[in-house]
Simulated assay, not measured.
Amino acid sequence: MRDSEAPTVQPLYTPEQRARRDASRWTLVQGILAPVQFLVFAVSLYLVVRYLLTGAGYDAATLSVVLKTLCLYAIMVTGAIWEKVVFGQYLFAHAFFWEDMFSMAVIALHTAYLWALFSGSLSPSELMWLALAAYVTYVINAGQFIWKLRMARLSSQVTA
């Protein structure tokens, strides 16, 4: 295949979007919240699995899932604001459409956990299994975002 036949890669950001991204305080907020949420997730995952394996620590595991869910809500709200600043719409901008779509599943499962917890509709063990399902979707979604941002970084290095 000749160079002229090589497929072109659409950059994640236009120059204007990159400038807005770099100038936005919401970029920093996202950069802080993402690792905080991951740390809360890691501790919570340990507590949830410990409860499922030993039956000990239900209150700590429950509190950790609630805290993880609050972190998720915070990063989703601020992420929507960031997306509005950079792309002109709160969610489902072309550049992050599939990541945002999958984020809805993540939010739905975390919210289902809160609903089940406060309504008493699931047993403690069922709640922890629901938390694990929410965490699996979170890991997939985080991977989507990391992959997308890595590809954006690599494409910006090629075009620079």
Results as ranks from 00 to 15, higher is better:
Gln89Pro: 02
Ala61Arg: 03
Leu114Met: 09
Ala61Asn: 06
Arg18Pro: 06
Phe87Val: 06
Met151Glu: 15
Trp147Gly: 07
Trp115Ile: 12
Gln144Asp: 08
Ala74Lys: 00
Arg2Cys: 03
Thr137Val: 05
Ala42Val: 14
Leu91Trp: 12
Leu33Tyr: 00
Gln89Cys: 11
Gly57Lys: 05
Val48Arg: 15
Gln17Glu: 07
Ala152Glu: 02
Phe97Tyr: 13
Pro11Arg: 02
Gln17Trp: 02
His110Thr: 05
Val158Pro: 03
Arg2Phe: 06
Ala134Cys: 01
Gln89Asn: 12
Leu72Met: 10
Glu99Lys: 00
Asn141Leu: 04
Val85Glu: 15
Arg21Ala: 11
Ala108Gly: 12
Asp22Pro: 07
Ser125His: 10
Arg50Gln: 07
Gly88Lys: 09
Arg150Gln: 15
Ser125Glu: 13
Val86Leu: 00
Lys84Tyr: 04
Ala105Met: 09
His110Ser: 12
Pro35Gln: 06
Tyr90Lys: 05
Ala131Arg: 12
Ser4Trp: 14
Ala19Gln: 15
Phe102Gln: 02
Ser156Tyr: 12
Val136Asn: 06
Glu99Ile: 00
Ser4Met: 14
Val106Lys: 00
Ser123Thr: 15
Trp129Thr: 04
Gly143Tyr: 05
Ala61Tyr: 12
Ala34Phe: 14
Gly55Ser: 15
Phe92Ile: 07
Phe145Thr: 09
Pro11Lys: 04
Ile140Trp: 05
Ile146Glu: 07
Ala105Arg: 04
Asp3Gln: 12
Thr111Ile: 02
Ala112Met: 08
Lys68His: 15
Phe97Asn: 03
Arg21Lys: 14
Ala60Phe: 13
Phe102Met: 14
Met104Asp: 14
Phe102Ala: 05
Ala23Phe: 08
Glu99Thr: 00
Thr137Gln: 07
Thr159Pro: 00
Leu28Asn: 13
Lys84Trp: 14
Ile81Trp: 06
Met151His: 12
Glu126Thr: 11
Ala133Gln: 06
Met101Ser: 08
Thr54Met: 03
Ala160Phe: 11
Ile107Arg: 04
Ser123His: 09
Ser119Asp: 01
Leu130Asp: 01
Gly88Gln: 01
Gly88Cys: 11
Ala74Arg: 07
Ile107Val: 13
Ser123Arg: 15
Tyr51Leu: 09
Arg2Trp: 13
Lys148Asn: 10
Gln30His: 06
Val86Ala: 00
